[in-house]
């Protein structure tokens, strides 16, 4: 094995390296998960309370007070929760990942490994939270005696899309955050606005038809619609042109994110 180190030399075997370090990825993810739950009293319950209470509030505000329609005959809380799932995953992943490099500064400045591993590993923690929330969803479906359709089987595909949708912006912000710490203040903004800009508390069918395509520029619109389609079965319809556009958005963000990250990756140790 021969390595050549030169200024600005793009590494040919970056992706092969990433594969070689897959065990480090697993170990870091495992570390983040176990540390997260180690010194909390109710541990996993935090992953339950947050989305559950938000779901209750949204149901009351959008469903009861604003009297917005649900999708088909699906119960409003169920529809909200189906949207909450990817959204909570997205926002937790974004927040954790963007701080990950700074909180692992001692690693970055002392050992070499493809830095991409660090933010990617934190997203796994968000995914564990997601699984816990998913258990609540199943509980709720039993409560409402709601039987999902075959669409439920496609859900993993949408989970993957949600993962990629979070990874793109997360990498972009992570890279920027190392250089300019201002970006850490940007995250709560994105998460707060995004919660209302994305169809979390309401169905995207509420959006007028002519704005629908424009609305789908937000990658999370496609992801949330996809989740609802899987979970609510036949009650929810996917707006396919919008969905395709959202996918393009996800891909674009991912491309920008990885590019930006790779560009500054080598200087992290000097900046951090």
């Amino acid at each position: 094995m021969e390595i050549i180190l030169e200024a600005g030399r793009a590494e040919k075997n970056y992706w092969a390296d990433l594969w070689r370090y897959r065990e480090l990825f697993q170990v870091l993810a495992w570390r983040d998960v176990s540390v997260r739950y180690k010194q909390t009293v109710i541990g996993v319950v935090w992953a339950v309370i947050r989305p559950f209470l938000t779901m209750v509030v949204f149901t009351v505000i959008f469903g009861r007070l604003a009297k917005l329609p649900s999708e088909g005959s699906a119960p409003y809380p169920l529809m909200v929760f189906a949207g909450m799932l990817p959204w909570t995953f997205f926002s937790t992943a974004l927040g954790d990942a963007s701080n990950s490099l700074i909180s692992n500064a001692n690693l970055i400045s002392k050992v070499y490994f493809p830095r991409l591993i660090v933010p990617a590993a934190t997203i796994v923690v968000a995914f564990i939270d997601f699984l816990v929330s998913f258990a609540i969803l199943i509980g709720m479906m039993m409560w409402y005696r709601y039987v999902p359709g075959w669409q439920m089987l496609v859900l993993p595909v949408f989970v993957l899309i949600a993962f990629l949708a979070a990874l793109g912006p997360a990498l972009w912000i992570t890279a920027a955050n190392v250089k300019y710490r201002d970006f850490r203040y940007v995250i709560p903004f994105i998460v707060q606005f995004g919660l209302y800009l994305s169809p979390v508390g309401f169905s995207s069918t509420v959006v007028p038809e002519r704005w629908r395509l424009l609305y789908s520029l937000n990658p999370m619109v496609g992801v949330i619609d996809g989740f609802r389609w899987c979970i609510l079965g036949g009650e929810s319809q996917i707006y396919w042109p919008g969905f395709a556009l959202s996918l393009v958005g996800v891909a674009a963000f991912l491309w920008i994110g990885i590019r930006q990250f790779r560009k500054v990756e080598k200087t992290f140790a000097d900046l951090i």
Binding site: I3, I4, L5, E6, A7, G8, I108, S109, K110, V111, Y112, K266, T267, A269, D270
Partner: peptide, 9 residues
């Protein structure tokens, strides 16, 4: 490989 050289090989 923690940091990149400015010049050289």
């Amino acid at each position: 490989r923690i940091t990149e050289p400015t010049d050289g090989r």
